[in-house]
Write a protein that binds this DNA or RNA. Structure first.
Lengths: 180, 180, 180, 180
DNA sequence: CATGAATGAGGCTTCATTCAT
DNA sequence: AATGAATGAAGCCTCATTCAT
């Protein structure tokens, strides 16, 4: 799975062949099919794990600062994601930056939804605190993440290392985009 | 080309087969190869056209409001892109929202660069006007676009129709993200 | 036809495309089909011309030295072929050195036969003069040509220029192979 | 491999399709590519095997009659090749009679060279014994083989069966062509 | 008579998946 | 449970030939 994750995020879904996964992982090609029914199921499994990781991160950050300012919660989440981009590069790539449209199954889309909902809950709290602008929370959660994504891309590409000025600027920018 | 553009943005590069393009376009498969040397060259040609369209849009908007406020220029650009997302859906999808990493050739990357540079020029003007925050223009140009992209996705998906509240909110958010 | 001849002998039958012939000849691809019903008929036409050239050469050399020694006739033929290999390279290549097995039609095989028969007539004369060894004339004609072919290959490849020692040696060797 | 060898020597390289090889061999087309990277590599592999067979034959014949007369060595080689033409028809066809110019890779050309060198060594010995005529050994080795080839063609075509008068005549002719 | 764009059959190759060992 | 050779559908591309202009 680790090998597959690495390859999917490096070469993309289509250019990652089962033969390559097996060779790099030091197993036989057929062995893959004793654990997953298909290549598609394999990415989905990896994708869901990535989503769960991100969701947990959001929930934990929110819970740790329960009743605190929404901005502080989002900042904590942002740092957590950036940290992940630096040390669990492939996970962040597959879960947040890759485009897997045609390959994801229903369960994966549901897991994705869970992550979005968790993030929206935090934004909703911000709205309750009158810190977030008027407008649907779905929009602001998505906008905040889209803005932050540029920093994630940079970190994932190795252009930026975590305690980078650019990262701080963008976390701040993401907040400005959605705050009153 | 129109058929190919439609399919590439609907199914993605890999799931769009030459046989399918030909069938939908009502031509023979071999005919594709009298106009393009390969499937890859075909996407690249389409991609470059999309980039040129976007670049021109940025340049025109900037030129029309020469010496005007950077914010007004960016707003004009945003509306132009949104308009494009509504009426030339596939062009915007292929040029700004698709992920074509492994398929683009050098010339395409150069054309992409032209677009980024054009956008950065506008942001640089904003900095000169003390309207844009401290930090590299490359970052703010990219952040502005990343933020706006969420609106483009919505419009492209048909969820939002151009004079939509969401669109106005996000254009505003993109500006807030990068302005002082 | 000249262009086609050149290409067939340079690239071989299969690697010579009708598109290439047309381009190099400065005509349209379709024009080929106003003169020949197919690519195959085109090679056959060229092949037959080459055979006729070679047959005429044999007949002329024999006639000029009518009633002379067979060896002198064969030597004259050899020099004629070598001369052809030097100045009409492509003709000799297509007619005597190329392997066109699957492409030749019945008429071409007949024309080929004519050439062989002409050569055998000379060898038969040699036998009548008790200058050629015992054994079927078909064999000795073919053996003589096979031996000479090595010189033709060398000349055709540009390794040897006509008044070359190697050429003389081989013409001599070919005669020795079949003479008493 | 046996099926491919048979087809290549019967239909030629271009008219032998991978689909045909697979069908005749009773395997799937894709299976070919688990053993060879391409159709071209497949012929090259077969070609090299044929060359090695011929080279070994030359070396063995020479070694068995070490210090013996060169003529005897060449006669032994000739009989070996004729024998091969009779019983391993396809091997001789592919290795010595086919024209594979555009398809052979560097290694194959090197293997071909090995065979020629082995044959030249025998001819050189003949020269040292003053049995072979003046002139480069490369020439006489090639001439001897070219002359013999006519017999190989006949045997390969099934026109002659090994202990045939024609064969003996030609082996003799080949020697006469190059001997003093 | 020449043109050259269009055709479509067919070639080579890849690759996710299966199954006997 | 793991293996890895075999599978065969399907993909991209070539090219001799046709035909409307």
């Amino acid at each position: 799975m680790r090998t597959a994750l690495e390859l999917f995020t490096t070469l993309g879904y289509h250019d990652t062949t089962t033969a390559l996964i097996a060779r790099k992982a030091g197993i036989a090609e057929g062995t893959i099919y004793r654990h997953f029914t298909s290549k598609q199921q394999l990415v989905n499994e990896l994708y869901r794990a990535a989503q769960r990781w991100a969701t947990k991160l959001v929930q934990d950050a929110a819970h740790d600062r329960d009743a605190g300012a929404a901005r502080a919660q989002l900042t904590a989440i942002a740092h957590g994601l950036i940290e992940g981009a630096a040390h669990e590069t492939a996970v962040v790539k597959l879960g947040l930056l890759e485009r897997l449209d045609g390959v994801l199954d229903d369960e994966s889309r549901r897991t994705r939804r869970d992550f979005q909902v968790a993030l929206e809950r935090v934004v909703a709290e911000g709205k309750a605190q009158n810190a977030v602008r008027a407008g649907a929370v779905e929009i602001w959660a998505a906008v905040w993440l889209a803005t932050l994504s540029h920093a994630l891309e940079k970190v994932v590409a190795g252009d930026w290392k975590p305690p980078d000025t650019g990262v701080r600027l963008i976390i701040d920018a993401a907040w400005r985009a959605i705050s009153v």
